[in-house]
Structure formats: structure tokens, C-alpha cells
Amino acid sequence: MSELLEQARAWVGRPASPPATARDPVNLPMIRRWCEAMGETNPIYLDEAAARAAGHPGIVAPPAMLDVWAMAPYRPGGRTAEEGMAVLSLFDAAGYTGVVATNVRQDYGRYLRLGEVVTSTPIVADVSDEKRTALGIGHFVTLAYDFTVDGEPVGRMTFRVLKFRPNLAQPHSAEPSAEAKAWPHPRPAITHDNAFFWEGVNQRKLLFQSCEGRLRHPPGPMDPLTGSLDFEIVEASGRGTIHSFVVMHQPRLPGFDYPLPVVLVELEEGVRIVANMIDAAPEAVEIGRAVVADFVEIEPGYLLPAFRFA
């Protein structure tokens, strides 16, 4: 289990934030405003006689307003830190800055009456394993709210949010020249599987997935032998030998120098990787020759791995 997940799961069963008590009791002006916004015309929410005729002791609040009463106040600049939830902040700090609510369930013990003051207490109910979703990699956090009036339970709510890493940043140059615009250098497609590799390249490191000591490349979600989704990321020394190679003459794509030696290098860690040779005469490239990894800045902020003779 990741350190983040361990820290987040330590919150399960504990209050996500201190209880919040409504600043105003259940009241007619707020009910009226809610009914107007929703187009609600059920008379039991506004008319005493209609409410009694329907068997209520008097005017009652729409059940969907259960979680409205104790909401955080408006404040210029947004919520205070105390009104936030530390368990969610853990994910923000780890880069899971996206948040989207996915499920809400409310159970109403009884309808709320005018004058009642609602207190809301959220408990962290669950933190999921890491999930791959359409929005990005993330964790579902489930919060269980108890609503009380003078200690009497009046309703419950479970609220599930996804905390996710927003769509992965794709490499792009800040201000491409007119020529580069016409013939942009091809870019890798950054995916959830290979993002770590390209982040490593940007730090001039060659990173590989390792499952029980077996390194693999190109990056993928699963260990080919066991099907395991678990892996560690290890840094390679960059030393290796040419396992195979080609020298590109045609077609001549813009942005490359020709003739271009492209090598398949077997690294000393046992994993193979394809990259361009640099500072090498094509005729000097031969199978078995020792090479060492380097990094070429194609455009500002866009690096590619390459090899040169050791």
C-alpha cells in the first residue's frame, strides 16, 4: 500500500471535519427560495393548512434540503482551512488535485419542521484502492454524514467523491518557430502507463518498471509473466551494449539529421530500449559496442533519450 493510501486510510472511521451546526433554524424564507429555484409547488413546504391536511404537524422542509441547512457560509475568497477536510487535502498535496462527486445517497428519518436546528457530522467511511478512471488515476473517498436535531437523528447521507490527478500534461514547446509549426517534431503520447518514463526523461533519468526484479520496457500496466498490476520504478545506469540497429536514410522526416543510426540497446540491467545514436558516424555503429545514455533537448523543455559511444 502506498504511503498516501496508508495515511488516507488512517482517517477511516474518524470525523472528516468538526460537526457543523446550521447558523439558522429551518425557516420559511430559505424554503421558499429553494422551492422557487427548483420549481417545487408541493404546498406542504409553504402552506400550514396543506401541511396539516397531508398529516404533518405543520410546515415541513423539502427532504432534499437536509444538507442545505449546515452548509459553510459564503465568504469572499472561499472556504477556510477548518471548513475543508484534511483527508482530501492529503490527496491535493500528492497531486490528486481534481475532485468530482460521483454518488449521493440520502435517507430521511423524518421531515424537518420550522425552527429546528440541524447539526451535520461527516465521518470518513472508506478510501478506495487506486482506480483508473476516464478523468484520471484517483481514489474514491466516501463520507458518511449524520444529521441531528438536538441529538435526535433525523437523516443520513453518504457522499462519494473521486480525488484524481487531472489529465496528464503533454509535452509542448513554449513558442515554436514558424518552421517548427509547419513541421513539428513528433511527440510521444503520454499515457497513465508511460507518464513516469517521460517524467524521468525530463529529469535526465532512465526509469523502468520492475516487478519482482523483472524490468520491462516499453511501459505497460501488467507484468507479462504474472499479470500483476504492482510494480516499482527503478533507475537504470544508462550503460549498455548495442543489441541491434538500423541506419535511417529514407524517408527523411523533418527535425532529424540523416543518415540517422537508431539503436536497440541492451542495458546492463537486462532491459532493452530503442533510441537515436548521437555523435556517431553511421559506419562506426556495430552490434556489441558499448554505449551510454544521454539526453537531447529537442526543444526547450522537451527531452528525448539517446545513446553515444561509451
Partner: peptide, 20 residues
């Protein structure tokens, strides 16, 4: 709110909304 107003339009004041 819209979901419950939608159901409320149909069921009227005699039904109680118990859960959503």
C-alpha cells in the same frame, strides 16, 4: 432538488420521500 421536485410533481403531498 430537481429530481425530488420531479417526483413530487407526480406523487403529490400525500407521499413521503424516504430516501434518494
Amino acid at each position: 432538488g430537481f429530481v425530488q421536485r420531479y417526483v413530487s410533481d407526480w406523487c403529490g403531498p400525500d407521499a413521503r420521500i424516504a430516501a434518494v
